[in-house]
Computed example of a mutant assay.
Amino acid sequence: MTDTAPRPRRLQGADVGIPPRQLDFRLPDELAPWAYSENATATLFLAMLSAIFPPGEDFFVRSVVAFRDRVTDEELRARVAGFTAQEVIHSREHDRLNAAFRDRGFPVGVPEKAVATALKVLGRTSPRQQLACTALMEHFTAVLAEDILSTDEFQKRVHGDICELWLWHALEELEHKSVTYEVYEVIGTDQKERDRSVPLVLGTVGVAAVFGWAYLLVQQGVWRRPRDLREGWRLMFGPGQFMRRVLARMPVFNHPRFHPDRHDTRALEQRWRETLFGAQGTLTEHLRRPAGKRTV
């Protein structure tokens, strides 16, 4: 007798809290002249960050997928699938934002290529070391995302034309913040690899990002405007400011008991899921989904 019982459906990313949301952001025909607090220096820092996301997220996905066959737990496999899908969509939407920045006159291809080259250097290390470096960079993006969502500072400073894209990206970075590290745990974390990841990432991606930002500042003539430079530096790295807060939390990655979920952001994630994708969510209308289905 043939067994015709249906096989259990394989878990998907949406089943484990990491839904791939297909979005259609409506970027304006022209971006605001200076989208971060009307300051050129800070705006170009934001443009640099957007530029480096596509090559960075491609590296993240490849470093995790390299060990996908070692993941036997069904739930973690679904989390990896959700992580991969979210990162692919992030790259696509930042490509679109980067095109808008180029139309605005910012040569964001320079920081993008610089970071892509830096990641090729990281790609010469062992697959294990690449995964450790990805775990560190995912820790950075998670801390960055939490800071964006935890206060209204970012929303007040960044022009509404592009702010929603960053809020959506920040939410999804928190939703999948522990996936890379959990795959790393499957293959066995190594403290020396984690410690090495800091100088490796700083000496490659960090240097490339700073170079890309500096290039934009020179190309846009901002280097001749000391008042703007001082104010932009204060907005990004001054006492109590955005990037100063983020960088202050990075060293926890090297603690022997580090795990992304030891810092609980579930309530923050749920609040922003409802804010962005609930019944009255500000981004609900941007979702592309089959009729009758609602993805949050």
Rank of each mutant, 00 (worst) to 15 (best):
R9G: 09
Q12I: 00
I18E: 06
I18T: 10
P19S: 05
P19N: 04
Q22D: 12
D24S: 12
D29L: 11
A32C: 06
A32T: 07
A35V: 08
T41N: 08
L44T: 04
F45M: 11
M48A: 14
F59A: 05
F67T: 09
F67V: 11
D69I: 00
T72W: 07
R79S: 10
F83C: 01
A85D: 06
V88A: 15
S91I: 04
S91T: 11
E93C: 09
H94E: 03
D95G: 09
L97E: 05
R102N: 02
D103R: 14
R104P: 03
G105L: 06
G109C: 03
G109P: 04
E112K: 09
T117P: 05
T117G: 14
Q129W: 01
Q129H: 09
A135G: 10
A135D: 01
L136H: 02
L136E: 02
L136D: 03
H139L: 07
A145Y: 00
I148V: 15
S150G: 11
D152H: 09
Q155S: 15
Q155R: 14
E164G: 13
H169W: 01
L174N: 09
E175Y: 10
E175N: 13
T180V: 15
E185F: 02
D190Y: 04
K192I: 10
D195T: 08
R196P: 02
A208S: 07
A209M: 10
A209Y: 07
G221C: 04
R224N: 05
D228A: 03
D228H: 01
L235F: 06
G238S: 04
R244Q: 15
R245Y: 09
A248R: 14
R249W: 01
R249K: 15
V252Y: 12
V252R: 15
P256G: 00
R257S: 13
R257K: 12
H259W: 11
R262Q: 12
R262T: 08
A267E: 12
E274Y: 08
F277Q: 01
H286M: 06
L287P: 05
R289M: 11
G292F: 08
K293H: 12
K293Y: 14
V296Y: 07
